[in-house]
Simulated scan of single mutants.
Amino acid sequence: MIEAVKFWNEPNNKSHWDLELDPEWIRFGEMTRLACSAVAAENAQLTRVLGGISPIDPQFIQRLDAQGVLDGVHAVAVHGFPLDWNLWQIHEWPDKLAEIQAVTSLPVWVTEVGVSTFGAEEVQAWGLERTAQLLMGRAPRIHWYSLYDLPKAWPATTRHREAEGSSYYRHFHMGLLREDGSPKLAAREFHRFTPELGICQWFHFEDHRLHDAVRWLRQLGVKKLRTGLSWADSFRPDADAWFDRQMAALDEFDLTVTFCFTPEHRGLQPHHTSAPQVAEEYAEFCARMVRRYAGRSAPMPLAATA
Rank of each mutant, 00 (worst) to 15 (best):
M1Y: 05
E3V: 13
E3A: 12
A4L: 03
K6M: 11
F7V: 00
F7D: 00
N12R: 09
N13W: 13
N13M: 05
L19V: 06
E20W: 04
E24N: 11
W25G: 03
R27S: 08
F28R: 05
E30W: 02
C36Q: 15
A41Q: 13
E42Y: 04
T47L: 11
G51R: 03
G52Y: 06
S54N: 13
I56R: 09
D57T: 08
P58F: 05
F60S: 05
A66T: 09
A66D: 11
A66L: 06
Q67M: 15
G68P: 15
L70G: 09
H74G: 12
A75L: 06
H79G: 08
F81W: 14
L87E: 14
L87G: 15
Q89I: 04
I90P: 06
H91A: 12
E92H: 13
D95A: 14
K96R: 15
A98L: 03
E99F: 03
I100T: 10
I100D: 09
L106W: 01
P107I: 01
V108H: 07
T111P: 08
E112T: 03
V115M: 12
F118I: 01
G119P: 03
G127A: 07
R138W: 03
P140S: 04
L150I: 14
W154A: 02
W154P: 05
P155G: 02
E162I: 08
A163W: 02
A163T: 06
Y168W: 12
H171L: 04
G175L: 02
L176G: 08
L177M: 10
L177V: 05
R178C: 07
R178S: 04
E179T: 11
L185Q: 15
E189W: 12
H211L: 12
H211S: 11
L217K: 11
R218V: 09
Q219D: 14
G221H: 14
K223S: 14
K224F: 06
K224A: 14
T227W: 00
D233V: 00
D233K: 04
D238V: 00
A239F: 08
M247T: 07
F253Q: 07
F253M: 06
T256S: 13
H265G: 10
R266P: 03
P270D: 11
S274Q: 05
A275K: 03
Q277M: 13
E281L: 08
A287Y: 01
V290T: 00
A294D: 02
S297E: 02
A304V: 10
A306W: 04
A306V: 05
